[in-house]
Design a protein around this nucleic acid. Sequence first.
DNA 1: GATAAAACGGAGGCTACCTCCGTACTGGTT
DNA 2: AACCAGTACGGAGGTAGCCTCCGTTTTATC
Lengths: 198, 198
Amino acid sequence: MSAGGQQGRKPRADVQRNRAALLEAAQRHFLKYGVGTSLEAVAKEAGVGPGTLYRHFPTREALLAAVLQTRSEELVARQEEIARLGDADKALEQWLRALEEYFSAFSGLPEPLMAAARAQDPDNPLTLPCDIVISATEEYVRAAQQTGYVRASVQGHDLFLAAISVAWLKGAGAAEEESLERVRALIVAGYRERNTEA
Amino acid sequence: MSAGGQQGRKPRADVQRNRAALLEAAQRHFLKYGVGTSLEAVAKEAGVGPGTLYRHFPTREALLAAVLQTRSEELVARQEEIARLGDADKALEQWLRALEEYFSAFSGLPEPLMAAARAQDPDNPLTLPCDIVISATEEYVRAAQQTGYVRASVQGHDLFLAAISVAWLKGAGAAEEESLERVRALIVAGYRERNTEA
DNA sequence: GATAAAACGGAGGCTACCTCCGTACTGGTT
DNA sequence: AACCAGTACGGAGGTAGCCTCCGTTTTATC
C-alpha cells in the first residue's frame, strides 16, 4: 500500500481501463474535430457505452479538463525552462507563447476556458487551471514591470486575455501564421515600456 | 411600374411578409441567444414552418447576413461621421471601435465571420461584408501611416483580426468592461509609432 | 373566376445529448 | 473455490435541433 489514499476500496480494474481508453479516444477526437466533437463517437471509439462515459466525466468540460491535464504538466515544465532565462522581459514573452500554445491545444478550446475563467464556478473543472495560469501570468508581468520593461498600467489578466484571443484566432483557422505573428508583435509592442532601447 | 425590374412577375405578397417576419424574429433571437440559436424556434416565432425559413435563407449564414444588413448600414453611416474628423489617427481609433461594435452585434458572431473571412467562399454570404470591412480598415491604416502615427509594419488585416478578437472576448462574456478597455489600449499602443508625443 | 406557377408547412429521417435501470463484472470473504 | 455485495457497465429511449421532400394552399395574372 504505497499509495496512502484516503478511500478504503481499491479502484476496480475495469474502471481504470475504461477511463484510460476514454481519455485516449477523447484526446484523438479533440485533436481531430475540436472540443465540440461528438461524445457518443468518443465513447464508441473507446469501446464503452455512453453511460460509462458520462459516469466517468459528467460534462464535456470534465472530460476536457482531464485530457488537458497532460498539457498542463507540459506548461509547468515550460515554466521551469523559462525561469532559467533570468531575463524578465524574455520570460514574459516566452510565457505568453507557451500560454497561447496551451490554449490552442484543441480547436474551440478558448471558448470553454473563457467561460470558466469568467464564471468562477467551482464546479467547473476548467476553473482551476484557468486561475492557475492567470496567477502565473500576473507573476511574470510583475517581474517584468520591476525591471522596467512593461508599462505599469498592464495587468496579468489583460495578457491572459490577449493570449487566449490569439489562440482563438489560430483555432478559428482564421489567419495565416504571418498574420498571427504580426498580431503577437502588436501585443508585445503594446505592453512594452516606450523607452526599451536601453 | 416605377421599379424597372427585369423579372416579369410581381413578387408575391406572402413572400415579402414571411421574409420580413423571419428577419424580425431572427434578429430578436440572435440578440437574445446568440448566433447559435435554434432556427426552428425562429421559424415558429415568425409563424412559418421550417421549410419556409430554409427556402428563404438556405443556411444560417444567409439569415445572419440578411439580419446584419441593417448593422452594415450603420457602419457606413459611422464611416461618414469618422471622415469628418480629419485626423487620421483618431479616425483609425474610432473605426476600430465601430468595427468591434459591429462584430459584437450578436454573441457568437465572430466565429462565422472569421470562417467567411478565411475561406473566401463566394457562396458564403458573409464573405462580402468581411472583405468590405477589411478593405476599409486597410484604407484607414494607410492614411494613419502617411501621417506617421502608425508603424509601417502594421497591416489593415492585422487590426481587423485584433478588432474581431476583442469582439470575441466581449461576446464570450469573458471580461468586464475595464479589462476590455485595457486590452484595447494595448492594441492601440501596439500599432502606434513610438514617437507619438509630437 | 379559372389557371398555372410559386410558396407554404409539417412530417419525417438524421444526429447528438444525456439518463435510467436491468445486467454483468470484480474484489474481498469464507 | 465458490459466494456475495457492491460497483460499474451499456444500451435503450426521450428530447432537441437540423434539414428536406412533397402534397396542399396561396397568389398573380388572364
